[in-house]
Design a protein around this nucleic acid. Structure first.
Lengths: 241, 241
DNA sequence: CCAAAAGTGTTTAGAGTACACCCATGC
DNA sequence: GCATGGGTGTACTCTAAACACTTTTGG
């Protein structure tokens, strides 16, 4: 199949190939009102790591692209459609799984948590705060940490933040997304200036009623819908191996 | 092996898994003296795409990590050690290869072209200017384009530029790297200022003799040696699918 | 001396930051 | 009125860019 000289030497035991997905959504803390990052995990129902929580995943179907497999995977565990989906990294260390050699191609996704999706919890599927997702099966702790790193990196450059939100949002909500992802609070005045002049966002003539303060204006994201991505690069950083 | 419900349904024909590597080096044009990006390609010696040029690659060995496989692959075709090696992307489209489903995990590397390495050309291994590497086998045109995009993105942020150069270099040589990668000329005065204050580079007390102008000072890279990478992220951008 | 690259200085424009201040709403 | 977040203005700092200028070498 390939070009280099020795093709058939080293493929005694072909490694298994699987797809996993790190799915992020925002939920606001009922007391503080601040947004927090959550992700769904799946309980393992067989060895190894039986009973531990793990990233949703499964084998790659024979007639689906890598991205399709990740999207399917996402629908199967959350019943939600991704608003953003991007490849994270291919993990192939020798020590990842005990029995057989396993290569996992991991995607990360953003979803808008509506009633249906977040309600879909069960004995074996549960949402966790990203900050509390520890002790996962395999090397999934590191994968989640790396996905968060990528999310942080990408929110500062690209336009992923909008994919956490609905089609109308206030600048305060958008700022909440940034604050949740970056883990620090941002100056409202400066944030406003930066994003009012951002070209892939535009003001509507509506305001959000019902708050107990001055009703804020609603904005709309008008940039590209990057469910299947295509934006500009910068680099990933290989994760903790 | 994995957690989601239906494990054994879709894995009728397991996809083949291969590693490929995009290897970049700089060579200076003998007439203009400007640096240019080159990469080695391998001629295919079997169907499909027999006779076309392709990225060096091959199957993943059963007892090597993904990165080790890429490094081996690189040594086998160029006899050089990588000064930088990083995962690029996992390509798994359905239309990539005719016969069997193929998933390729692609790495990109930088090397310092010494006599040995660049001389290692043969009937089936040849170096090409990156700008002239077109009409390659499979989807390798797009992979090379994406690797160049990543290189450009990463040179502006990270510290990959030094990995094209030897351990002593002038600021003009370093600027040549940037100009070759970014494809535009840079102001020597401003370039100097930026990089003299960069913290992972330090001046030596030597100068480069033998030019026909004022002898320039030599500098040394003192930052982390990222052959096996670990730096900070920002994001990749999924390539043209 | 002359050409050419090495290296320095100065000016300007823009982006990010800090923070004082006014506006509109619910209570 | 008053508390609170929405929204505006302004001053300051830092960096990149543009570009004039001096220095040091080989020929």
């Amino acid at each position: 199949m390939y070009s280099s000289a020795n093709v058939s030497e080293r493929q005694a035991q072909a490694p298994a190939l699987a797809i996993s997905t790190v799915i992020f959504a925002l939920r606001s803390d009922p007391t503080s009102g601040r947004s927090e990052i959550w992700l769904p995990l799946v309980r393992r129902i067989r060895q190894p790591h039986l009973g531990k929580w793990a990233l949703p995943g499964g084998p790659l179907g024979g007639s689906e692209s890598l991205q399709d497999a990740a999207a399917r995977n996402l629908r199967e565990t959350t019943d939600l459609e991704p608003t953003y989906l991007e490849q994270l990294y291919a993990f192939g260390g020798l020590d990842r799984a005990a029995a057989q050699r396993l290569v996992s191609i991991v995607y990360w996704a953003l979803v808008r948590p509506d009633q249906a999706g977040l309600a879909r919890e069960s004995e074996n599927v549960r949402w966790f705060r990203a900050s509390e997702a520890a002790g996962l099966a395999f090397d999934h702790d590191e994968i989640v940490a790396y996905a968060l790193e990528r999310l942080r990196g990408k929110i500062e450059y690209g336009s992923v933040a909008y994919h956490f939100l609905g089609d109308r949002f206030t600048l305060a909500q958008l700022r909440g997304v940034y604050e949740a992802v970056l883990g620090r609070s941002l100056d409202p005045a400066n944030f406003r200036r930066q994003f009012r002049s951002a070209k892939d966002i535009s003001a509507t003539d509506e305001v959000l009623q019902g708050g107990r303060n001055r009703p804020p204006r609603l904005y709309r994201y008008t940039g590209p819908v990057a469910t299947a991505p295509l934006p500009r690069p910068a680099e990933p950083a290989p994760p903790p191996s």
